[in-house]
Write a protein that binds this DNA or RNA. Structure first.
Length: 271
DNA sequence: CACAGCTCCTGGCAGC
DNA sequence: TGCTGCCAGGAGCTGT
């Protein structure tokens, strides 16, 4: 599942490939992929637009155009792939939901097996990202900023997964950050000491940075924009490692369910 | 306000 | 071998 590190990896690559390019034409193969506006308007308004920048906010890819922005949320299994003019085979893939032909003959492809991902064409990205919590990798995200996020009587893990509280964490990196900070996912968020908040702050940032350095985590579906897998799956401490040894203490990793989500933890390290 | 449950969706897999 | 049915999960929504 693409979380902050995967979306960041994609946005960086797309910056190289898309900035300065013009969208020549748009083809929507599954109308449900377009959230807004209506498909006809989506296609018409995008044609002829030039890409000015590609950004990331939370788990959204933001493709900035002239006075508009194309936002993409990949959800579970979505991919944004660059299809070179010389290798059009990808365009026959049955899971391609929309494609954007560029003025150099290459094609930006939105592929999504599970049909959870969405495309949004808006005037102002704030319409979608305005309500997101802080970005964990910015300078503004201090331990005090995290502390403000945690001032609620909610279980730690569901709170960290809430994009309105903190932007970018998904199931994998939440489990990894809680393991690194040695905090139990069921702890009440407002019960953390200043020292524990500082540990969690450092853990969140370190986990995300390492994952970006590794090009993201590929457990099953994630691919970068050239179809390449990430490498961070080999560095995971607990996620998807039920019954395997905790890298810190050697105890067997447990899997429990928290807020209807599979949750991995070390029962010895995370009290 | 907190949180459980449901919805969307389909490939992959366990169980029979 | 082949079928059935459950599972995963981000986010928005409803119900308690």
């Amino acid at each position: 599942m693409p979380e902050l590190p995967e979306v960041e990896s994609i946005a960086r690559r797309l910056t190289e490939r898309l900035v300065g390019r013009c969208i020549a034409s748009v083809e929507v193969r599954w109308a449900g992929a377009v959230d807004r506006p209506a498909v006809d308007a989506f296609v018409n308004k995008l044609s002829g637009q030039r890409v000015r920048a590609v950004q990331r906010r939370g788990k959204f890819v933001i493709i900035e155009l002239d006075g508009r922005a194309l936002l993409v949320h990949l959800r579970m299994a979505g991919r944004l792939l660059m299809c070179p003019a010389t290798q059009p085979e990808l365009l026959q893939d049955p899971y391609v939901r929309a494609l954007f032909r560029l003025d150099d003959g290459s094609v930006l492809v939105f592929r999504d097996v599970r049909k959870f991902g969405r495309l949004y064409l808006v005037q102002d990205p704030a319409e979608l990202v305005g309500q997101l919590g802080p970005e964990p990798l910015t300078d503004a995200f201090t331990p005090e900023a995290l502390s403000a996020c945690l001032r609620r009587k909610r279980q730690l893990k569901p709170l960290l997964l809430d994009q309105h509280v903190l932007a970018g964490l998904g199931n994998i990196y939440t489990d990894e950050a809680l393991w690194a900070a040695q905090l139990h996912p069921l702890r009440s968020a407002d019960s953390l000491s200043a020292d524990e908040v500082a540990r969690l702050h450092e853990a969140i940032r370190a986990v995300l940075r390492h994952a970006i350095d590794d090009g993201g985590t590929t457990l099953r579906d994630y691919r970068g924009c050239d179809g390449e897998p990430g490498e961070h799956q080999y560095a995971l401490a607990v996620y998807g490692r039920r019954a395997q040894p905790c890298p810190r203490c050697g105890a067997a990793v447990e899997r429990i369910v928290v807020g209807q989500r599979g949750t991995h933890l070390c029962p010895i390290c995370q009290k």
